[in-house]
Write a protein that binds this DNA or RNA. Structure first.
Lengths: 188, 188
DNA sequence: TTAATACAAAACAAACTGTTCGGTTTTATT
DNA sequence: AATAAAACCGAACAGTTTGTTTTGTATTAA
């Protein structure tokens, strides 16, 4: 990828993150973004069709980043599903979040966390299906697998959200413990 | 309240709901709302400061409506906390949702459900605190009460969301069963 | 060096926002 | 029934945002 492209792309992402840490997504205009990023109007629209696409791209990029660094498998989180113990996956994710990536925290803090967390959750579902469901590690219950996977994903995302909004006072291990305490009779 | 006020207020609410069932909240403009509601521009802003306030008002109104009709306690859901069995509260809520109030479904279906559900959830938390926590009916655990209440509320809201997005194929009783299966070892 | 590509700056029409003004209809009061 | 208050409408407004186009410059890869 052209050095120039990567440069403006990053400039836009960073500007966007900075703005997200100050105000709501809805209240941010493209104008503000290009001002903050010091980038031409034309350039912005050459990179991102709309503000929504920018957000989506940022989420994708951050999710890939989280997964890659948390798992130590650069450039291929499609291999996520291979040979990792379940709780260590969750623990790794939490540990990585604790390392305070500026961009990630901007997306997770305050009003905007739902945007990223929705994206996060949908990817988490896939992960859980491949990690648990396909390998028959969900405890048998009367619940539809669909429902169960959604419940577990939500519970984890909610745990993360709860943790972040309260300034991450607990350790990742503690949060993992909380999380498992609510779902470990359903799956492990 | 002046009949005229109630009338335009309803017209705006209904128009807004109709639009919400078609497109995203973000993509709806005030212009569209007042066109759909057949209401003057000035009138809209006399009623609602911004689009966000309109949304908030609609959520409040619908939540009150759900609570009132589900509990049969018109005009006072502050007395919600008196003498109702816990699971019947959930069941009542689900039964009421099944009666297909147009406005509520508009807020719950598709892309927009998070908006109302966040509001729903925060009220649910209060309800759970007063129903369970204050009466010592949360099973003892290592979890902070805060965390537990959030988990239970989220689980219910997620259950509702799951139910609705899949066209409410199950009965309210069935969903209550699913919900309780995931949390009844934590509280009852 | 050359040709492609990424960028900037400015201008553009179209739409949206929130407010103001003058005038009309409805409601509650007497 | 008469009147005053309140709610409404329509039009116009300045300001902002959006997404596109155009013209020209700088950077990159070949």
């Amino acid at each position: 990828m052209d050095r120039r492209q990567r440069k403006t792309r990053d400039a836009i992402f960073n500007a966007f993150s900075r703005l997200l840490s100050k105000k709501n997504y809805n209240q941010i205009s493209v104008q503000e973004i290009i001002d903050e990023a010091n980038v031409g109007r034309t350039t912005f629209y050459a990179h991102f069709e709309t503000k929504d696409f920018l957000l989506k791209s940022l989420c994708e990029e951050l999710f890939d980043h989280i997964i890659d660094t948390a798992m130590g498998m650069p450039h291929s989180h499609s291999r996520l599903t291979c040979g990792l113990e379940a709780d260590s996956v969750f623990l790794h994710l939490l540990r990585h979040l604790q390392e305070n990536d500026l961009n990630i925290l901007a997306l997770l803090s305050s009003e905007n966390n739902e945007i990223f967390l929705r994206y996060f959750k949908s990817n988490l579902k896939k992960l859980i299906v491949s990690q648990y469901a396909e390998k028959g590690r969900l405890k048998k219950s009367n619940l539809p697998e669909d429902y169960l996977v959604n419940h577990i994903s939500s519970s984890f995302v909610e745990a993360v959200s709860w943790w972040i909004t309260r300034k991450m006072k607990e350790t990742p291990e503690q949060i993992t413990e909380y999380f498992l305490a609510t779902v470990d009779m359903l799956a492990l």
